[in-house]
Amino acid sequence: MVSHLKHRTLSGALIEEIRQAILSGRYPAGSQLRQDALAETYGVSRIPVREVLFQLEAEGLVRIVPQKGAIVSELSLAEINDVFELRALLEPRLFRKSAPLLDGDDFARVEEVQNRFLKATAAGEIDSYGQLNAELHLALYRRAEMPRTQQIV
């Protein structure tokens, strides 16, 4: 699926794919993520899968358990609320910096992503909602020149 990408891009694409699969519920809380199965599913070796699982553990999305491997974490309501409250603080700041600098190409990109989101919604493609939402927000914030804040969001 993502094996045609260079290593650095491969890890980035792979983490997005697996993160989205967890957040969409395709890999539900408590399920085991086996390195060999993930490597086969995404057409990569186990090395980038292992790197991604360690990163997802740092993000709190999985727990690495001895003798069991990676287990999808159950996010508490408090953790979910914490993330949304943090985003509510940071995203307006990003948008205020970016909005005056957006140009015609930026607005065309926003419209294109919005149209893809509407199509996905109409088709009930739940797995794509999170990725499209992230693309839309990143398109709106791209001119902010605040890389640390964007990374946190």
Rank of each mutant, 00 (worst) to 15 (best):
K97Q: 13
D105I: 00
L86V: 07
Q114I: 01
F84E: 09
L90R: 09
L118P: 03
F95Y: 15
A108W: 11
V110N: 05
L89I: 13
G130M: 08
A58S: 14
L101Y: 09
A122E: 15
D103C: 09
Y129A: 11
G130D: 06
L77C: 07
L33A: 00
G124P: 02
S76G: 12
V110C: 08
Y42P: 08
L101N: 14
N81G: 09
G104F: 09
S76V: 01
V62Y: 02
E91R: 14
L94H: 04
E40G: 04
F95L: 13
I47N: 15
L77G: 12
F117V: 02
A120F: 13
K97H: 12
L101S: 06
S73P: 00
A120H: 06
S76H: 07
Q131E: 10
Q55W: 12
E79Q: 14
Y129L: 12
R93Q: 12
L136A: 01
E59C: 04
I126C: 05
R93E: 11
R93M: 11
A37R: 11
G104L: 08
G60T: 00
E79C: 01
E79I: 02
D103H: 12
Q131L: 11
R96H: 07
R34F: 10
P66E: 11
G104V: 04
S76Y: 08
G60E: 03
I71N: 05
L89A: 14
T121C: 03
A108N: 08
A37N: 10
E135I: 05
G130L: 15
N81A: 10
P48T: 02
T121E: 13
G104H: 07
L75V: 07
L132Y: 03
P92R: 05
P100G: 06
I71K: 09
Y129N: 06
E79W: 05
Q114C: 10
R63C: 03
A58F: 07
D106W: 06
L86E: 15
L89W: 13
S98L: 02
G69F: 05
L132R: 08
A120W: 04
E111F: 05
A88N: 03
F95P: 01
S73A: 14
F84N: 07
V49M: 01
V65D: 04
A134I: 13
